[in-house]
Simulated assay, not measured.
Amino acid sequence: MRRLSWFNTVSLTLGFAFLYIPMIILVIYSFNAGKLVTVWTGFSTKWYGELFQNEAFLNAAWVTLKVAVISSTFATVLGTMAAYVMVRGGRFYGRTLFSGMIYAPLVMPEVITGLSLLLLFIAIGLDRGTLTIVLAHTTFSMCYVSVVVSSRLVTFDRSLEEAALDLGCTPFDAFKSVTLPIIAPAVISGWLLAFTLSLDDLVIASFTSGPSSTTLPIKIFSAVRLGVSPEINALSSIMIGIVAFGVITTSLMSKRAITRRQAEENKAVQ
């Protein structure tokens, strides 16, 4: 095993410190008893209680969660279909244009995407609200799902599908029974990526949201412009805790699955 050099150690330490020290400070000051977020006056959890009584934040959190679940589901379905066409469709007329349209949102500035969607909704007379945010988030997150699923389909062993077809399966049954279960980790990863992008989006949502459909990032940004309150620290700490719990849980599940797979392989060898 190679040991880390002093340069790598210092670089990693500074990098992790730059990333996580602000988060640690934020979590610490979320338990501050005073209203000033930079002056420690004592330990208290009252701001968490105040947060759960704040209807504006709760409504924004509900809208954000609802939009994220719906848009990521639609994006996963459409992105998987697009990836399947790109990988399995072969050469067809308009393939270059189709692939360019799929990957364009990856490099398109969010301001341009949000403004163009806003003009589209105005042109067709669609009032801005939860529906427009869902459509916008589905549009820009679908390409990320397509990239993730395409990378898995490229390395997929097509002989498994051919075996299913030889045994009497229809192409749809072969996809449902063979292909989809194998690429399921990539599909789930794409859904989680789209879900995370939707939760975190501010720019596109600010163009496509209406007065009754404020998302949590927009609410936090609006509140911060008037000054950082302890409630925002408490909300951010809860979000950090949820993300940390999800990452740790996923890592433990992956490690357990790898250990179980290795144990099964060793037992098969014996």
Rank of each mutant, 00 (worst) to 15 (best):
F43P: 12
S44D: 13
S44A: 15
S44W: 07
T45Q: 11
K46I: 14
Y48L: 11
G49L: 14
G49E: 13
L51Y: 01
F52D: 10
F52A: 11
Q53Y: 14
N54L: 08
F57W: 08
L58P: 01
L58K: 02
N59R: 05
N59T: 02
A60C: 05
A60R: 00
T64F: 03
T64K: 01
K66Q: 13
V67A: 12
V67G: 01
A68Y: 01
V69A: 11
I70C: 09
S71D: 10
S71Y: 03
S72A: 15
T73W: 06
T73H: 04
F74C: 15
T76F: 09
T76V: 13
L78K: 02
G79R: 01
G79A: 13
V85L: 14
V87D: 03
G89L: 03
G89Y: 02
R91S: 09
Y93H: 03
Y93M: 06
G94E: 00
L97S: 10
G100V: 02
M101K: 00
A104D: 00
P105L: 10
P105A: 07
L106V: 10
L106H: 07
E110N: 10
E110F: 08
E110Y: 11
V111Y: 09
T113P: 00
S116V: 06
S116H: 03
L117V: 03
L119D: 03
L119V: 08
I122Q: 12
I124K: 07
I124F: 11
I124S: 06
G125Y: 05
D127F: 02
D127S: 14
L131M: 13
T132M: 05
T132Y: 00
T132I: 04
T132P: 04
T132E: 04
I133S: 00
I133Q: 02
I133K: 01
A136Y: 01
F140C: 07
M142P: 00
M142H: 02
C143P: 09
V145Q: 03
V147N: 05
V147M: 13
V147E: 08
V148P: 03
S150F: 08
S150P: 06
S151D: 13
S151Q: 14
S151R: 09
R152L: 04
L153I: 11
V154K: 15
T155W: 04
R158K: 14
E162V: 06
E162L: 14
E162S: 12
A163C: 15
L165Y: 11
D166H: 10
D166M: 14
F175L: 06
F175T: 07
S177F: 04
S177I: 00
T179I: 15
T179W: 01
L180H: 06
L180G: 06
L180Y: 12
P181M: 09
P181L: 08
P181H: 10
A184D: 02
P185M: 09
P185G: 07
A186D: 05
A186P: 02
S189P: 08
G190F: 00
